[in-house]
Design a protein around this nucleic acid. Structure first.
Lengths: 240, 240
DNA sequence: CGTGCTGTTGAGGACGATCAATGACGGTGG
DNA sequence: CCACCGTCATTGATCGTCCTCAACAGCACG
């Protein structure tokens, strides 16, 4: 998208009051007639299962639409909702405005399609993740993704501002186990040992543990930094 | 899409020789400059992990593009490939042709976007699936999805023509365990007991076991048949 | 000063992976 | 016609990861 198109999109934004951590970003998707764009903070979309548990499938950062599927799909899944993980600022764009934008600027349609494709790509990765052996890899991988996406929008703070419960619900693990894994990562000096927050102090090691390959994120400029980390030549105790 | 647009798409198809079961439908995605449309048979796209194991993330039936992401994403994940699970017929469409189609018929672009959104929707569901308790539910859910998608394109044959290995690689289970689950389903008279192939003889029960709710497939006409099956009023032994 | 929420720690148990071997079937070649 | 082989389905036994339940500590909040 070129600046002209971005400007046109910005014109259509309707700013909303701040959303506090834990609150719903969008109601039940089906009712609203607009899409929601995240301006700051971290949000996620999840599905509530019958037993009440929460399954997070996507994370959203500034610049992401949290509920684009409602625009395209005739009857989106009603059990899907989005929640702010930190305090967030959001804006909405009416479906009608999107329609006009797409009609006038074909590149906007392409960009939105591309965004959907990227989300699918991340879903694929998360699916793989569920499998990739030791829960430790899953958590590490999740953290790598968060860091990479934060960097992509200029956030270099090494603290990932989400709770262990959120990680558990995204990585398909119990909170208890996530906690133990985080402690293991702390012992390895991958995460900060001091505080209960999640602060990454050794990204390289984290990427190695995760076997992380950020290419699926489709953010070319990040690839050199996050490309698949080959196993180091030096022998290294496997489980330290 | 209206017929005029469908016709235009059909004009662009280049038919390919048949692909035998087990063969690659597309090479390494990055090299080709065209998208691949499945005309008949069943295919899947998967990612090959470092340890050689295969993780299936999407199934494709007639009418699905197997590698649309290559068109949109600058550098698709190279570890992703597509494989025929049964003998398949495919056709290709050059990226340039897609570009022209999208430019001329905006609805084509919209339809492709929608297809991507649907794939994302199915990925989400698969992600949930991994969690939904007993491996039995996962397998049942997978089978329900296959049946529903087959019906959507007019295939009513109750035999799901894929191997147990394929189910295992899609449901994230070991083949051995998948086998045991299938036997359990056979004992429940949900699957045919006679042959080693997977033949569903009690769809309703299958949907109940799976807790299947087909709405995520975005196929309105199928919903009545596959809508969330409420627990039956009559008391029913939970584990029979 | 109680009440939640998040993080932390322990013990026991279940589900599913892994390894290993066997059976059923179809094709191929002697 | 039969021996051989490959693929896929089936079965048994053992073991490990991760879940569940339960309790407690720190901290913010009213």
């Amino acid at each position: 998208m070129e600046s002209r198109e971005v400007d046109a999109l910005v014109e259509c934004l309707e700013h909303r009051p701040p959303v506090l951590a834990g609150a719903e970003v969008i109601g039940t998707a089906s009712s609203a007639k607009h899409a929601t764009l995240l301006l700051s903070g971290v949000a996620c979309s999840y599905k509530r299962l019958e037993d009440g548990s929460r399954q997070i499938h996507s994370f959203y950062y500034a610049g992401d639409f949290a509920d684009l599927y409602g625009y395209i799909l005739p009857q989106p899944d009603e059990a899907i909702a989005a929640q702010a993980l930190t305090d967030c600022l959001v804006a909405t764009v009416d479906y009608s405005a999107i329609q006009e934008l797409v009609a006038r600027y074909p590149n906007v349609g392409l960009a939105l399609w591309r965004a959907t494709m990227l989300e699918a790509s991340m879903l694929r990765e998360r699916l793989l993740n569920v499998r990739r052996g030791s829960a430790q890899q899953r958590v590490a991988s999740l953290l790598c993704e968060q860091l990479a996406r934060r960097e992509a929008i200029g956030i270099t703070n090494p603290i990932v501002p989400i709770k262990q419960v959120d990680i558990a619900d995204a990585a398909v693990l119990s909170v208890v186990h996530v906690n133990r894994i985080i402690q293991a990562l702390r012992r390895r000096n991958v995460l900060s040992r001091a505080s209960p927050v999640i602060e990454v102090i050794d990204r390289k090691q984290l990427a190695k543990v995760a076997g992380f390959d950020g290419r699926y994120l489709g953010i070319p400029q990040l690839v050199p930094e996050w490309a698949a980390v080959p196993h180091p030549p030096a022998a290294d105790a496997t489980t330290a």
